[in-house]
Every structure is written in C-alpha cells, then in structure tokens.
C-alpha cells in the first residue's frame, strides 16, 4: 500500500503552547485511519494543518507525494481533500441541498456572468450537479429534509449534513472531526455504517477523530495517538492496545481501553 498522506516532523506552536510537537505518521490509501487522544491533545490542530487553516511551525505534509504545506486551503480542496468540522460549520440559513452544493463548489464551473444569466451551461451544470448531490442525500438518508434550512435541524442530523457536505466533493481523502460526538448509540451505529460504506463502496480514505475507543478499535486499520501534542502511539488497533504509553495516557484520564 502506498501512503496517501505523509506527516513528517510537524510542529505547531501557539505562543508558549506546543499544540503539535514533532509529529510523524502516514496514512495509507483506502484505509480508515483514526486520530485519538485526550481533550486538547492536538487532534483538531492536526486536521487544521492538513486542510491548511493552520501553518505548521515546521515539518512537511505530503499528499500523494506532493508537498502541500504551503498551499492555500481552497487549493487543497481542489486536490480532493474534504473536511467535516468538529463544531458544526454549516451555512445555517441555507437548505441541505445548497449546503451540499457548496461542497461541490470546486467541481463546478459557472461564474458570475454565466450563472447570472442562467442559460445553457450554467443551467445544465446546476441540474447535473444536483444529481450528484442527490446521490449523497440518498446515501446519508437525508431525502426528507433536502429543502430544510440546516439551522432548524436537530443536532444529530446537522452532524450528518456536515459529513454529507464533505462527501459531496467526491473526495479521495475525507477528514472527519468527531462526527459522532453527542450522538446516542443508534445514531453512532448509523454513522459508523456510513463511514464503513465510504471506505468500502466509495473507496475514500477516511481520517477519523473519535473519543469512543470501542468504535475506533472496530473501524480503524491504523491509529495514531496524540497526547499534549506528541505522538505517543502509531500502529494497528492491536498494537495500540498493547502500547504502554497509550495505556498510561488513557488511565491518566480514567478511561479503560
């Protein structure tokens, strides 16, 4: 297996806080990869470095062999990297459909002139991409709420739309920051099934941040563990469960693997 993403010696500093400290790992193409660690360990900061919202103080991030550490966030999206946020960052006034269509922004072409006239290409494009968006709607079972303004939806559904918006890009790599946070068990199971399907049916490489270790151990091919910005473990679920540093970090948090 070739790596799709290589994180090499990435450090990120905020004033005196080392959010990431010399972190190295890689993610293989087509796998489900989990990033775990206690609160404040630097997981979200890691995703921000990958999607370009934070600039690492030092280190290298390669996507499919290409250095992306200096690329702008919107450029990384065009490369096929999608992201669902931990704190839902949907466009609350827009419908589910429009949120998902925004997910396809980089795949569409119409501009201010053709779009404003809504003739020929621009009109066809809206319809053609609507079809793609409907595939995501069907996949995530959002049919009943496609025209609903996202802000009025319950939390669990908003989380699902957040994932849907990332999926709408048709990404090669999807970054999911706690997509199951705050969900009950049956909602979590459903989301876990969606993640498995993304991986198996759609062939997307998934990076998952999740605090429920049971789910993480079940879903993941590989796991990296962060603690105070340092990588304290990296390997298969079996290896992680045996890793004394990881056990210590988690027992410190009074969680048992």
């Amino acid at each position: 297996m070739e790596p799709i993403l290589e994180i090499e010696a990435v450090s990120l500093q905020f004033g005196g806080v080392k959010a990431l400290d010399d972190v190295t790992y890689h993610i293989e193409k087509g796998e489900i990869f989990s990033l775990i660690g206690p609160n404040g360990a630097g997981k979200t900061s890691m995703l921000n470095c990958i999607s370009g919202l934070y600039q690492p103080t030092s280190g290298s991030i390669r996507y499919k062999g290409q250095e992306i550490v200096n690329k702008k966030p919107y450029h990384r999206t065009t490369l096929g990297i999608a992201r669902a946020f931990q704190n839902i960052a949907l466009f609350a006034h827009m419908s589910v459909l429009d949120n998902l269509k925004l997910g396809r922004h980089t795949l569409m072409n119409s501009g201010a002139i053709s779009g404003g006239m809504y003739v020929g290409k621009a009109a066809n494009e809206e319809i053609e991409h609507r079809k793609k968006v409907e595939e995501v709607i069907e996949f995530l079972e959002l049919q009943d709420i496609r025209h609903t303004p996202v802000g009025t939806l319950p939390y669990g559904l908003q989380k699902r739309v957040e994932v849907g918006r990332a999926l709408a890009l048709g990404p090669e790599l999807i970054l999911l920051d706690e997509p199951m946070a705050g969900m009950n068990n049956s909602e979590k199971d459903l989301m876990a099934r969606f993640i498995l399907d993304m991986h198996e049916v759609m062939d997307i490489t998934v990076v998952l941040i999740e605090h429920d270790l049971g789910i993480v151990m079940n879903l993941s091919d590989h796991i990296a563990v962060l603690d105070f910005g340092k990588r304290i473990g990296f390997g298969t679920p079996e290896e992680i469960q045996k890793n004394p540093d990881v056990i210590r970090a988690y027992i410190g948090e009074e969680t048992v693997i």
Binding site: S51, F91, H105, S110, G115, A122
Partner: peptide
C-alpha cells in the same frame, strides 16, 4: 441561486468553512 451566489453567502456566513469548500 447558482455557484457564485452560494459562494458569496458562504463567505458572508462562515469564511473558514467557505475556504474548506474550496472558495
């Protein structure tokens, strides 16, 4: 109701998420 207008709204409402949409 087309791509550019949606992008404008996205920039207005959440500029960070808008960037991640590739805007």
């Amino acid at each position: 109701r087309t791509r550019t207008g949606r992008a404008f709204l996205a920039v207005r409402d959440r500029d960070i998420a808008a960037q991640i949409m590739g805007i």
